[in-house]
Nucleic acid binder design. Structure first.
Length: 415
RNA sequence: GGAGGAGUAGCGAAGUUGGCCAAACGCGGCGGACUGUAAAUCCGCUCUCUCUGAGUUCGGCGGUUCGAAUCCGUCCUCCUCCA
């Protein structure tokens, strides 16, 4: 940022366009003026910026929460910038400090490669992966000598480390912090040096790590990266951030019907946020939607249905989205039987107690469970509720067994 | 190295003068009703089973006792503080 770069009026326009678009939806850009400078330089010189996103090398479970960042990267891509996808295969060996630091099992390079491939596939639902570059941080981190590590660590004080929110919280509440956890942000920062990153993106929980990159880059005489943080999105419970371990997520790799249903189960209040952060619906349209919702012009259910449709379409395709919507409407709105019910050939007795039927069909894990399910009124045969636990069922070809609202099985009997 | 604290069902958390404990309560999960949806709200279930009874639980093992999650011994694990 030393030499003055001058932009033509047209270039200024383009800079404004990019800055404005890229600022949308972010929580924080640190620092804002450097951000603009970077964009400016890129526009004037035609040299794309390097935008980094780091990821854990363990088995990917990409969900809607992650896509918030991906949608932002997608925007960068559309402006011609270069995406650096960093697989933290070395960092992953150490263990992520933000978790309850269970010792992580070391992945083989085959597993890492496999997981990276899965990332490429799943991220590809939002990003153009052909235009992204994959990096592995073991490439440079494994080369460092202890002396290098000391030099790296020398840039930082314990007090500074403890500024990090989760370290601070743990420290003040007498929770343990392992020394090696301090190296996590250092390594992440070093990655930015190695990759010459211009902008690093991440969720707000990454703020400290992203800033660490700036500090270290400066110490090593590199141009400092800009940190861009995005909101963490709440999961299906509407309370806690979306994550696999809380089982409140919508995975991009899940079945269409599952994605649709899960999307329909998000709290109404969260719909707009999901629209804004996890879809590519233009902001103007979303604003309109918000207005219509507020004055009752549109029905919340329909708005949510559009969102659900959007998700399935993004991750699977339009046709699948239509099918999922149809399925949802028949099963949940009309309480009717869906079109495609999985068929199972019945090979057991012609007459069986319901309880055994459910267990043998694998629709209930045990007879005890099956019994409870019937007592709760959750079992139907040919759309008739089964009231008596002792009911004997005469199995017929085409008989439909239903457990709860969502589990259906059609029996076939061959002579 | 020394001192102290804790380990209860998927999670959190009661219960520790021994029986009324299969174990409160909250969350989560699963059903049902209702509806605007797998929203919200309300109701029921939630250790296992050959289920109106039986079996196995409260970190592990062993003991005291007619009887222990609750008492004793020992081991394991985790945490904190001092050095």
């Amino acid at each position: 940022m030393s030499e003055e770069i001058t932009a033509t009026p047209e270039q200024e326009k383009e800079i404004d366009r990019q800055v404005q678009a890229l600022q949308r939806g972010v929580v924080e850009i640190v620092p804002e003026d450097a951000f603009r400078e970077k964009i400016k330089k890129a526009v004037v010189t035609g040299q794309p910026l390097k935008i980094k996103l780091g990821m854990d090398p363990s088995a990917p479970d990409v969900h809607v929460g992650h896509t918030v960042v991906l949608h932002k990267l997608r925007q960068f891509q559309e402006f011609g910038h270069e995406i650096q996808m960093l697989i933290g295969d070395f960092t992953g060996k150490i263990g992520d400090p933000s978790g309850r630091s269970e010792t992580r099992k070391v992945l083989t390079s085959e597993q890492v490669a496999e997981n990276a491939q899965t990332y490429v596939e799943q991220y590809g639902k939002v990003l153009d992966m052909d235009k992204a570059t994959l990096y592995y941080n073991s490439e440079w981190l494994s080369q460092l000598m202890f002396e290098d590590v000391l030099k790296l660590a020398g840039n930082l004080t314990v007090a500074r480390m403890l500024e990090r929110e989760d370290f601070h919280n743990r420290y003040t509440s007498n929770q343990p912090i392992s020394v090696h956890e301090f190296f996590y942000p250092l390594m992440q920062g070093y990655d930015s040096i190695a990759m010459d990153t211009d902008i690093e993106v991440g969720g707000t929980d990454q703020t400290f790590n992203l800033l660490m990159g700036r500090q270290l880059q400066e110490a090593y005489g590199h141009e400092k990266q800009v940190a861009l943080t995005l909101p963490l999105i709440e999961g299906l419970d509407g309370e806690r951030k979306m994550s696999k371990s809380l089982d409140n997520y919508i995975g991009v790799d899940e079945e269409p019907n599952e994605i649709f249903g899960k999307a329909m189960s998000i709290p109404d209040d969260l719909m707009i946020k999901y629209y804004k952060l996890a879809t590519d619906v233009p902001l103007a349209d979303i604003d309109q939607l918000e207005k219509d919702l507020a004055d009752g012009t549109v029905h919340p259910r329909n708005t949510k249905q559009r969102l659900a449709h959007k998700f399935v379409a993004m991750y699977h395709g339009e046709k699948e989205a239509d099918d999922a919507q149809r399925y949802f409407q028949t099963v949940f709105r009309e309480r009717a039987l869906p079109k495609d019910i999985p068929e199972v050939e019945w090979k057991g007795q012609a007459t069986v107690p319901v309880i055994n039927l459910l267990v043998e069909l694998d629709m209930q894990p045990s007879k005890g469970e099956a019994r409870k399910m019937i007592q709760n009124g959750g079992v139907k045969i040919n759309e008739e509720k089964v009231n008596d636990i002792k009911t004997e069922v005469d199995v017929e070809d085409g008989m439909i067994v239903q457990v709860g609202k969502r589990k259906f099985t059609k029996l076939t009997v061959s002579e």
